[in-house]
Amino acid sequence: MTWTWFHRLGSPPHVFALARRLTPWLGWPAALLILGGLWGGLVLAPPDYQQGDGFRIIYVHAPSAWLSLMVYTSMAIAAAVGLIWRIKVAHAVAASCAPIGASFTLAALVTGALWGQPMWGTFWQWDPRLTSELILFFLYLGYMGLRAGIEDTQRADRASGVLAVVGVVNVPIIHYSVTWWNSLHQAPSVMRLARPTLPGSMLAPLLMMLLGFTLLFGALVLVRLRAEILARERTSGWIREAVGA
């Protein structure tokens, strides 16, 4: 088996072309799945017997929360690959992940707060999952702040890469310490969104949304990656050919 396809992933022109080809293959299924999931979740699924229609925000909240963590992990893996093998494209992937991950985290926070208003009677509850999500948001902000603070791209890549790896080691520690902290201060009487069993009519749209959001993340990363490569390689000759100018 030859590894040339793998080695070519380190070359900006190849990745640029590949990203352009792959984007529709991720984007269109994402759009279909999200539209289908929204239709199934907001129209077809029956209202919950306890939460009424309020539970439907789960169809946006749960995929955002899942992606907020997934994107951070992908970002740290890409950064580690970039640091260890000194691959510039990997750093570009990590840099493209951060704003998307931060947006999903913000979406999870906002939808969580909107769900909390009718369910808990308050927009904000110091619930362990909401609190960890808020801390994760600050981790994203720190990562992007560090990138913005360093002018030289290569230094910014490597410094923020170290930060992403340090952060990913800390995420589980932060999560468990926050859970532990919360269990001391309030009884776990707060109503939980996650149930052990969801009926099929509610579960199927949720799975569609999860998959759709994940594909959407893939498509967004590819678009941002192309912009990132364009910005980094703006002085190289192949860019002219690639964009047809």
Binding site: I135, F138, G142, G149, V166, N170, S177
Partner: peptide, 16 residues
């Protein structure tokens, strides 16, 4: 920036 980088990582220490 330094506070934004270190404070989130320090939260477990604060809690315990």
């Amino acid at each position: 920036l330094l506070s934004l980088l270190t404070l989130p990582l320090s939260l477990p220490v604060l809690i315990f």
